[in-house]
Simulated assay, not measured.
Amino acid sequence: MDRQPNLEGERLLLRPLVRDDWDALFAVASDKRVWEQHPMHDRWQEPVFREFFDDALAKGGALAIVDRNSDQIIGSSRYQDYAPDDGGSVEIGWTFIAPDHWGSGINAELKRLMLEHAFRYVARVNFRVGESNHRSRKAMEKIGGALTDETYVAQLPDGPAVHVIYAITRESFANGPLANMNG
């Protein structure tokens, strides 16, 4: 599976994240509102975000989200943990979008593009969401994510953080809310 494809939608271009994207992406990430419900609520700070950014580049799978109208980077997302066995699975996550694009349908277009690409290779896509991140949990439900009984505990500087796992299968995607979007 190509975890760093170029994907194009009506309003978005997704492309591999590169080191030169630092300034534009940090301009988005430095808005405290982006991280207020996230388990890593201090990621708006330069040293904390630098670690996140460097990790994204090192692991591969990171994409810059570019607004096609303005040609500006408005966020980032990743494909992680690709597992080809048993029909295959991959995780989509580490997504953040500039607050001025919240509620605009950008997240739905982003996830539709990423899911369409992923389902060429895998039968299931997982999403790991902080248990108390109600904004992201609501967004997952809106795009057809099904809450599983799986959890993940991340060891963070402030202590353990419980994450819940949502899943979208190839079949649920084909019959879900994103299947009817223009694209």
Rank of each mutant, 00 (worst) to 15 (best):
M1S: 09
D2E: 13
N6C: 05
L7R: 02
L7C: 05
G9V: 06
E10N: 06
L14C: 02
R15G: 04
L17A: 00
D20H: 03
D23Q: 12
D23E: 11
L25R: 03
F26C: 08
A29F: 10
A29I: 10
R33V: 14
Q37W: 13
Q37H: 13
P39L: 14
H41V: 14
R43H: 15
E46N: 12
V48G: 14
F53H: 12
G61V: 02
A62E: 01
L63I: 08
D67Y: 04
Q72S: 00
I73F: 08
I74D: 10
G75H: 02
S77M: 03
R78N: 08
Y79R: 11
A83L: 07
P84S: 01
G87Y: 11
G88M: 13
E91R: 05
I92L: 12
G93S: 12
W94G: 14
T95N: 00
I97M: 06
A98W: 04
D100G: 02
H101I: 05
H101R: 12
S104Y: 01
S104F: 00
N107S: 02
A108W: 04
K111V: 01
K111F: 04
M114I: 12
H117S: 03
A118T: 03
A118Y: 01
A118H: 01
Y121K: 04
R124M: 01
N126W: 03
R128N: 08
R128T: 09
E131A: 12
N133E: 13
R135D: 07
K138W: 10
A139R: 09
I143H: 06
Y152R: 11
Y152E: 09
Y152P: 00
G159T: 14
I165F: 06
T169Y: 07
S172F: 03
A174K: 13
A174S: 15
N175A: 15
G176Q: 14
L178D: 11
N182W: 13
G183W: 07
